[in-house]
Simulated assay, not measured.
Amino acid sequence: MLFPIGLVVFVCSAAARPLHNSSEHASTSWTQSGEVRSAAIKRLLEVFGMEDPPDIHGHKQPPQYMLDLYNTVADVNGVTRDPDLLEGNIVRSFFDKSRNEQVDFRFNLSSVARTEKILVAELHLFKLRPQSTQTLNRHHFCQVSIYQQVARGHKNSTQKQKLLASRLMPVHSTGWEVFHITEAVSSWMMDEGGNIELRVVVQSLGGGQMDKKLVRFASGRNHHQSKQPMMVLFTDDGRRSTIQKNADLNDTTSSLPQAASPSRSTRSLGSTGKEGGSTHCQRRPLFVDFEEIGWSDWIVSPKGYNAYYCKGFCSFPLGQSMVATNHATVQSIINALKLVDGVEMPCCVPDELYSISLLYFDEDENVVLKQYNDMVVGTCGCH
């Protein structure tokens, strides 16, 4: 009853004031509200490891590879199925920046922090169907080699091109081809960083040059976005050492409800979602809606997630359903028997936390898959 009474007092007192004072008060309240929202959004960005939200122009379509990878490691609510499914905790996909018609590609890796450990680096190229069939019957396989373009005058350069990967490939095949270039990219990031330039060389088994119409790879200039050359990096930024204790579960989603997102009327920060009217310590719904925050233009998936929160009383005696620690049990006994003044009852707090996976565009419009620890309450307990 305190809130309605306070509201009536506030309205009555406001009505008794001169009109210009009311306008000034409303203006001040609005300014303070805007400042609070700005500070809250800034703090939330820090939780997601960003200083400012990425500025994305126009509608962008993420690579199918990244969408498939996200669906493998996260459920429909964004909850990470198993932290060990992913190599590292950040996956980035970079599109070719050269956008030429030839076989030279350039990838800007400046968004990767020097402190991150490169675990896996892959070059993804889409092999097109042959345009020429005149020499197709004479060539069944070709040698495809990936070279790194080393600028003249580079402190470690002894040659202009450095061989990174090479393998035989059927001439008539079509589809995605993946080349592993982890060692080269890791070395490049330690020494230089920034743009890395690669060249694809296709030769016959005899070492001669192949007809360019016979063996072709999609370029970023003349082909659909779904076939663009792409580099994929799996990195670890050092946060994996704090993975929560549910890491050994095969599927964390088995213990999380899969209900649809609650309506907007129940998504407010103060919603308790009265579950059967119970007042004992338990988990309550708390939906974080990225669209309401204004982040829907750069976050691909999920559109929001249920973070949950803990609320309720840890009253004596503490039953098994309250997941109480031994210390909490002793504290509740001390409180119940009034053995020591000022000792409160244990608090209802998260007992187990799960991570979520976020798929989004960064400031360079690269697509990033990143895991964030301790984002979803799994269970609540008295501590």
Rank of each mutant, 00 (worst) to 15 (best):
Q131R: 09
S166F: 02
V178D: 00
H140N: 15
A121V: 01
L163N: 01
M169E: 15
A121G: 05
L119C: 05
G153D: 10
S110C: 01
E122V: 00
S145C: 03
S110M: 05
S157R: 13
S145M: 12
L125Q: 11
T133F: 14
V120W: 11
T174C: 09
H139G: 05
R138H: 10
I118K: 05
K127H: 04
R152S: 07
G153P: 12
H140F: 10
S111A: 10
Q131E: 06
K155I: 04
T115K: 12
S132E: 14
H140T: 09
L125K: 12
C142S: 15
H140G: 15
I146Q: 00
F107I: 13
N156R: 09
M169C: 12
Q134N: 07
L119Q: 10
V171N: 05
H124V: 01
C142T: 14
S132V: 13
R152N: 11
R138P: 11
S157C: 13
L164N: 01
Q134G: 13
C142P: 14
T158K: 12
L128T: 00
M169L: 13
I118V: 06
S110T: 08
N137M: 12
H124W: 05
E122G: 01
F107Y: 04
V144D: 10
V144L: 14
S145I: 02
L123W: 08
H154A: 15
T158W: 13
A165Y: 03
G175D: 03
K155A: 11
Q149P: 02
E116W: 00
S166M: 07
L123T: 03
Q131F: 07
T133H: 08
V150Y: 06
H124F: 05
L128G: 00
L136Q: 11
E122T: 00
G175H: 11
T135P: 03
G153I: 08
V150M: 08
Q131N: 01
V150R: 05
H139S: 07
L136E: 11
Q134F: 04
Y147L: 09
Q159M: 08
Y147E: 04
K127S: 02
S173K: 10
S166R: 11
R114N: 10
M169D: 10
C142N: 15
L163F: 03
G175I: 09
T135D: 13
R114Q: 12
K127V: 07
V144G: 06
N137K: 15
R167Q: 11
F126E: 00
S157P: 02
L168G: 08
H124I: 01
Y147M: 14
S173W: 02
K155G: 07
C142K: 14
L136A: 01
W176F: 13
R129V: 03
V150S: 04
R167W: 11
S173R: 15
S157L: 01
A113T: 15
Q143G: 08
L163M: 06
Q159K: 08
R167H: 14
N156H: 07
L123P: 04
L125E: 08
L109E: 06
Q161S: 14
L164I: 01
K160Q: 08
V120F: 00
L128N: 04
